[in-house]
């Protein structure tokens, strides 16, 4: 394979798998207006659960599913801290993220859990596709997962409960005025969001052959960057398009990272590069307004 195809397929796989994270983050940050930072902890939680179960001989698909459920549980806790104990959304997420660090260490019995000799979901997929390269196998499996995720959310967000959830992030007081218990819609949203992030963590751990307690660092920033890039590039309208734009944004973001690495950046530099990239995309609309000479209100702090 030549370099360009190489970079594109790699970004394709990573865009899809981190696109699932971006969709989860879209659900909380955008749909619910709930800035949930717990994802830095739920991503490795998903990896840890899947890796430990698989290394103990569990069916890898079942292990992946249980990882998703575990992530939903963590998201539920974040939601409960906010809705029932009235801790701010931002702090609720941070508290859960910090707590999960210890939980993840406990689950793995250490800082990481290797999967070298174990049969992962990707290994099973490879058996179905003899002759295909490792990366193509990974892409096919992740495409299937992404189709399931987008299909589920496109359906769910159009149901009566799903509509109430979307309206909660828009005008909570009004939604309550129509008899919706918005605590419940927030809990459902946080659970699904973190479930998806843990699912992505489980897939990444299986594909890279190990789970690591630090693998979630920067996940929020990465996911937010993807969401924002997707919105800016594709200006999506409608539920399904918004979800696809998150995947597209993640792909563009990973492509950018792959190119930067090619150009000689060290893997350790990536977090800083991402941080700078996020600053740039976040401030773009602001700078455009500033250049136009618009009147700008003071900064928001959520």
């Amino acid at each position: 394979m030549d370099v360009v195809t190489n970079i594109l397929t790699l970004a394709g796989y990573e865009g899809l798998v981190f696109g699932i994270v971006a969709i989860g983050i879209h659900l909380t940050f955008r749909t619910l207006s709930f800035p949930d930072l717990s994802v830095d902890g739920t991503f490795p939680l998903g990896g840890a659960i899947a890796a430990v179960l698989i290394s103990q001989g569990a069916n890898p698909f079942l292990a992946t599913f249980i990882a998703l459920i575990g992530g939903m549980g963590a998201g539920l806790i974040t939601g409960l801290l906010n809705t029932k104990l009235r801790i701010s959304a931002l702090l609720s997420g941070i508290i859960v993220m910090v707590g999960l660090y210890s939980v993840n260490l406990r689950i793995m019995g250490g800082a990481n859990e290797p999967l070298l000799r174990d049969i992962t979901s990707f290994d099973i997929m490879a058996r179905i596709m003899p002759g295909a390269s490792k990366l193509i196998v990974a892409i096919v499996l992740v495409v299937i997962v992404v189709i399931l995720v987008i299909g589920f959310l496109s359906w769910f967000l159009r149901t009566e409960i799903g509509l109430a959830l979307r309206a909660t992030g828009d005008n909570e007081e009004m939604v309550r005025g129509f008899g919706v218990d918005t605590d419940k819609t927030v809990l459902i949203g946080c659970a699904i969001s973190n479930g998806l992030v843990a699912l992505a963590g489980a897939l990444v751990a299986q594909n890279q052959g190990f789970s690591d307690v630090g693998m979630g660092i920067g996940m929020i920033v990465l996911g937010l960057a993807s969401v924002i890039i997707g919105e800016a590039l594709f200006r999506p309208r409608g539920i399904t398009m918004v979800l696809l734009a998150a995947i597209g944004g993640a792909f563009v973001y990973r492509l950018f990272i792959a190119i930067v690495l090619r150009l000689g950046a060290a893997p350790g530099d990536l977090k800083l590069i991402t941080a700078v990239l996020v600053i740039i995309v976040l401030t773009m609309p602001f700078i455009r307004k500033k250049l136009r000479g618009d009147w700008l209100p003071p900064a928001k702090r959520w």
Partner: peptide, 12 residues
């Protein structure tokens, strides 16, 4: 659906 149970039917 004011005051009614909301389910998994299509909203619109």
């Amino acid at each position: 659906l004011r005051g009614k149970r909301r389910g998994l039917r299509r909203a619109v």
